[in-house]
Write a protein that binds this DNA or RNA. Structure first.
Lengths: 118, 118
DNA sequence: GAAAGTGGTTTCCTCTAAGAAACTACCTTG
DNA sequence: CAAGGTAGTTTCTTAGAGGAAACCACTTTC
């Protein structure tokens, strides 16, 4: 008798796993949380603002990550017709729903650090 | 006057960001959540069990990810002196503290799917 | 003694994430 | 007209993540 999957071979688990994969794929990469976190704190920021706020990121990565986040409707990009034109990035209502998740991530990270050193 | 970071240039944000980076680094990779999720459901599983449960993973990746998780004390590995020897992987108390986080990830993923299709 | 199960390691390969640096284009201020 | 600000794009390169397949050692069952 060949053994087969028993735990993960049920619809509830499958949907759960899929949901987790979805979330992680949307938030993948080194910078997504940094960008989202910064936009949640300081609402409406320009490209150069973000470049300054997020230490270490380069313009290429920032540009790409912003596009990803915009595609997934987590942030908005609005071009103001000023001179010179300026662009403002902001978190969307949808993006704001990530707050509890980001909160959990931060909380766990802090607790982990304490448990290792403390 | 040169502009500088204002939002992220304060200790609270720095610690937050660091904590998030820590968490993400510990849980990085394609399989960590799948492994943890599976071990939370079915407590105490062998290597081959996990290989069967986690669809798509190969033995090399499983081996590596299990080592990572064990190093970070999120799972335990105990060798039973049976014949043939068997190895049991289980979630630790520490690893179990990830449950709320995993819960949030799944919740958000499900909600996201609904908001896109619904 | 061959097949199948235990728990992995090793080798080789590919693809992508990420970063550095240069460049575009347009505008304003000194 | 040079310097510096706006918002990015392009090119080149490298490190690492991930996967397929073969292999090892040991044991039990058919």
């Amino acid at each position: 008798m060949k053994k087969e999957s028993v735990i993960n071979d049920n619809p509830v688990c499958q949907i759960r796993m899929q949901a987790i994969s979805d979330t992680m794929s949307i938030l993948s990469g080194k910078w997504k949380f940094h960008i989202l976190g910064t936009l949640i704190e300081g609402n409406k920021l320009g490209f150069m603002d973000l470049l300054r706020e997020i230490e270490g990121i380069g313009s290429k990565m920032l540009s790409k990550e912003l596009q990803d986040l915009e595609c997934n409707h987590l942030i908005s990009r609005t071009v103001k017709d000023t001179k010179p034109i300026t662009v403002k990035y902001a978190i969307t209502k949808h993006g704001a729903t990530l707050s509890p998740l980001i909160e959990e991530l931060a909380k766990w990270g802090v607790a982990y650090r304490k448990s290792v050193h403390g």
